[in-house]
């Protein structure tokens, strides 16, 4: 555990030691901030129209029309940003031969993989924590549902975990960070749009594609509905890709 935390600390500090991490954070906050402000303005205008409507405002729901779309947009931004954060995790170590040092040190492959995963997740946790002020604004202006907000953050965290695990495995296959980025982004995009193929299929195929889609599994979570099947999906997804990364890194020992 100590080794895992040591590696995680090293990875986390690497993000903040260079402007790249800070710039990634600024880009993330700028885009999420734009979406947030735009959604709040739009919802406010709709609320004003509904409040003065003689027919009342029966269907206005802050959680459904503002909170869920905001986190939906945040997920898309993460899809672009996370591969950029994970591309260097193994690729850089391979290029600089630091991986050989790691592999020859008394640290197990599992500790290396988990350490890098925890480090990347730590940075993403910081990114997500920086969006909490949006929630504060929402609570100041309206009455969002704490449960919906909490389950939405759970969704973002699980989704980010899935993204990082895929980024780890693609980073372990190449020394070139750009190739790692393209591979990681391509894989995530494919898993993301599986849900779209669902509508073009029927029966078991549609069911499997719909279930395997990364985006479909987070929809209920952003509505405040926590399914064990969704949480299990993300956890098993993360576990599988971490295992695949482990196998790949282990191969360096005997290759």
């Amino acid at each position: 555990m100590r080794n895992i935390l040591a590696i995680a600390r090293r990875e986390l500090s690497a993000y903040f030691a260079t402007p790249v991490g800070w710039l990634a954070l600024s880009a993330f906050l700028l885009i999420t901030g734009f979406f947030f402000a735009a959604l709040v303005s739009l919802y406010s205008m709709q609320s004003a129209e509904q409040a003065f409507s003689p027919y009342g405002a029966p269907d206005m729901n802050l959680n459904e029309y503002l909170v869920a779309p905001f986190f939906g947009n945040t997920a898309i931004i993460l899809l672009f940003i996370v591969p950029a954060l994970t591309m260097r995790l193994f690729a850089e170590d391979r290029k600089t031969r630091a991986l050989e040092l790691l592999l020859t040190s008394p640290i197990t492959t599992t500790e290396i993989v988990l350490g890098k995963f925890v480090g990347a997740m730590g940075f993403i946790a910081v990114m997500l924590a920086c969006t909490l002020h949006y929630v504060g604004v929402l609570f100041y202006l309206g009455d969002p549902d704490v449960g919906v907000v909490a389950s939405s953050y759970l969704a973002m965290f699980l989704l980010s975990g899935a993204f990082v695990s895929v980024g780890l495995v693609t980073s372990s296959f190449t020394e070139n960070q750009v190739v790692s980025l393209v591979l990681g982004f391509g894989m995530l995009l494919l898993l993301w749009v599986l849900g779209w193929a669902e509508s073009a299929s029927t029966g078991l195929t549609a069911e499997v594609l719909g279930f395997a889609s990364l985006i479909n599994r987070m929809e209920d979570l952003t509505k405040g509905l926590v399914h064990t099947r969704d949480v299990a999906y993300y956890l098993s997804f993360i576990s599988f890709f971490l295992f695949a990364t482990h196998q790949r890194v282990e191969a360096f020992r005997w290759s």
Binding site: V40, S41, Y43, S44, S47, A48, Q50, A51, A57, P58, D59, M60, N61, L62, N63, L66, L138, L141, G142, D143, P144
Partner: peptide, 9 residues
């Protein structure tokens, strides 16, 4: 059927 939630600024 759930509550409505207006937000005006």
């Amino acid at each position: 059927e759930g509550a409505s939630g207006l937000l005006t600024m």
